[in-house]
Design a binder for these strands. Structure first.
Lengths: 350, 350
DNA sequence: TTGTAAGCGTTATCAA
DNA sequence: TTGATAACGCTTACAA
């Protein structure tokens, strides 16, 4: 690997001159610059970014940690972040936090980026708190937390879940199950509370036998519902804490010839791309993922600029009515460009 | 930011001793180690990864560059890579190459990782060739290229396309269009050649009016087909160079009330997750994305170990018959966990 | 306009 | 068992 030293030597100048020339700094004679550039080319010189980062304590990179990079859930989120980072001349690197003790925390602790956006329930709040610094702000998307140099961007999960379940109740369903995610996930906890609140508001209470664990993945939803169906314990409706599990649930039901929504209604959460393509199309709570992403990134850049007015933000969700709980499918088909539905059902401020 | 220097000072030892203690090296008195660890904790010390990387010229990270991180296409690929990197104790960082002159090339050039996997047609072959080094191998997934420290993993696009189009021909379709991606994409070029070959083998030739450009994105497929339909120029069948465009095409047709497959048949390429969910379910060429990912990563690790036997690899594709060109849907339904058909791929050396 | 030299935070070598 | 000290490759005062 050719270093700047080699370039300088070949060009017959000092290292600092070589550096100046290479970085298009003024105060370098044109002839000298040419010599240096020529030498660099000849050696196929490429600067070592790590050394530069170390020296300048700046990486022009922001990091994004997701529980599962490969999940279908994140497209719009990534797009939102990316649009903002790119327009600020930054790179975005994404990593996923897999397993109980994700290796990627190393990446947070060791500060290989200028800031972080995190949406991974398997990364502990404690860890995040420890890693944040004035020059290393962190935005969390999957929990509520406000501490020095830490901000959160998200939706009011409890309220959103409350409304989704209330919708089921309004349609006359009484025996409503909950298909949940990992218990250490704040999102899951809040959605469960919203579910409980809604039942309670109608004088109903949570039935443990209908509280399923699906780990936020399709296979989990599939297994949980399959088991319940085998025991003949199915409720009339299921509120699933995310769409993936809801789709798994639908497949389990289909396998047993149980009709959705006629026999069991289903509501999901997230509005992933697939939601509108499954049959029946999934009624679900839309999270404004693109906005969450761009908001998180903007916050970060404002923080880089020492903007003191930054605060955590909560965005609005929207219940998207499709076919999976019967009744007026108002949406299905269309370009799926995320534009449908802004006029439909409720929008609310938090 | 507390550095190791601060820790050393607080513990009353030298920097080197602090380093030894912190890294669990032997030859440190237990008492001393305790003192150091205590100091580190008190200062909330976290090692600076960049400095470490610089010193050790090793990052224990491999990079993945995708044309569009947010695309639906990559889940399985990422999973394949991730499984291998994680089991080798490495991190995976993903970046996307957006636009004509992607900023992320910086990441390649500046070697912030120990190796790279690239699937982004907007990164030039020239650039890749320049960046590869003995200690910085690169695996390309979207083009055929073999040079020092560069290997490719992929499928035989031309053959796969040939088979897909031949299938249409065998079903009796004669007027077959091509919905293609960016012209600088090798994948696109090869698929087009396969399409042409298949037509030629039946004495047919390519009709320019049926050669559409959809930029590999859904919206592109939608627009192109919409336009063609408006001019009443639709062929009997369309071979789309990827699934996203195929789905866009289907939506354009649906909008005009044109039935698939009765009036226009469609075949896609990739077998993304959505393909089995759209109605009619999409007949398409499955690329073994998971295997491509794990294979690419394995190659990298073998290279790290100076394994000289590494060679480029070509994997087999498979035509998945569903409903979008009429006739015998052989696969559809199931858990969609990507496990179907895994007994069918074979490895071929190039 | 160019060169010398310090330093970013580590790890590693060698003496003490 | 510990401590000086020299790198790693770069940027940047400051001096010449």
């Amino acid at each position: 690997m050719a270093t700047i030293k080699d370039v300088a030597k070949l060009a017959g100048v000092s290292i600092s001159t070589a550096s100046l020339a290479l970085n298009n700094q003024p105060h370098v004679r044109e002839e000298t610059r040419k010599k240096v550039l020529e030498a660099a080319k000849q050696l196929n010189y490429q600067p070592n970014g790590i050394a530069r980062d170390l020296k300048s304590s700046k990486t022009y990179t922001i990091g994004l940690i997701l529980a599962d990079l490969a999940g279908p859930f994140y497209s719009e989120l990534i797009r939102g972040i990316q649009d903002v980072t790119a327009s600020n001349g930054y790179d975005l690197v994404a990593l996923s936090a897999v397993g109980e003790n994700p290796k990627s925390v190393r990446y947070i602790q060791e500060k290989r980026t200028d800031g972080m956006i995190i949406m991974a329930h398997n990364i502990s709040t404690e860890m995040i708190r420890k890693a944040a610094r004035p020059d290393f702000p962190i935005i969390v998307l999957d929990r509520k937390m406000e501490a020095d140099h830490i901000y959160s961007v998200g939706v009011d999960n409890r309220k959103a879940a409350f409304e989704a379940v209330s919708y089921l109740l309004k349609k006359g369903y009484r025996r409503i199950g909950y298909l949940g995610g990992p218990s250490n996930s704040t999102d899951n906890q809040q959605r469960f509370l919203g579910y409980r609140d809604a039942l309670k508001a109608q004088g109903l209470k949570v039935e443990p036998k209908w509280c399923l664990q699906g780990r936020f993945v399709k296979e989990g939803g599939y297994q949980a519902v399959k088991l319940l169906a085998a025991q003949d314990l199915l409720p009339e409706a299921i509120f699933s804490a995310n769409d993936e599990m809801a789709i798994g649930a639908m497949e389990a039901l289909e396998e047993r010839g149980i009709k959705v929504p006629q026999e069991v209604a289903i509501v999901g959460f997230d509005d992933i791309q697939l939601a509108r393509y499954v049959r029946p199309a999934l009624t679900t709570v839309r999270q404004p993922m693109y906005d969450m992403g761009s908001m998180a990134a903007s916050l970060l850049f404002r923080l880089f600029q020492k903007d003191r007015s930054v605060r955590s933000v909560m965005l609005e969700t929207e219940l998207i009515i499709r076919e999976s709980c019967g009744g007026n499918p108002s949406i299905s088909g269309g370009m799926g460009n995320g534009m449908e539905g802004s006029d439909r059902w409720s929008l609310r401020n938090v």
